[in-house]
């Protein structure tokens, strides 16, 4: 095997060297992404509420009891779980194109 072919063969393994670790890493990063978005939303909301003086404990409790809040939780729990586990089920969405690295 030439040195060039040897390198392409090694690199062509992509995530296959430790697929379990790659899957778990994908889940962790997907979760971290959701947390980042949530933090951003919370920061935005906090700033808005502080500006308007709109928050108190009674209003928060009333919002939690709304039917719309319940529906949101139902929808979100499904979307969140699927987003979190998708990288485990499909750790690598792209084709393996390394064979083209041998093009002449």
């Amino acid at each position: 095997m030439s040195a060039k072919d040897d390198l392409v063969a090694e690199l062509g393994k992509l995530g296959a060297r430790d697929p379990e670790a790659a899957r778990l890493m994908g889940m962790v990063m997907a979760l971290a992404g959701e947390v980042f978005v949530l933090k951003a939303q919370l920061e935005r909301l906090t700033r808005a509420l502080e500006t308007g003086g709109a928050v108190d404990a009674k209003r928060l409790a009333a919002a939690a009891a709304q039917e719309g809040m319940t529906k949101w939780l139902e929808a979100e729990e499904a979307a969140f779980a699927r987003s979190l586990t998708a990288p485990y089920l499909e750790p690598d969405l792209s084709v393996n194109a390394t064979k083209w690295m041998r093009s002449e």
Partner: peptide, 21 residues
């Protein structure tokens, strides 16, 4: 060259490797 080849493989830009060669 190793880093460049790795980038070509992992980002699906295989011809970045062949062009550099």
């Amino acid at each position: 060259r190793w880093l460049q080849a790795g980038y070509a493989a992992r980002n699906n830009e295989p011809f970045a490797h062949t062009y550099a060669g």
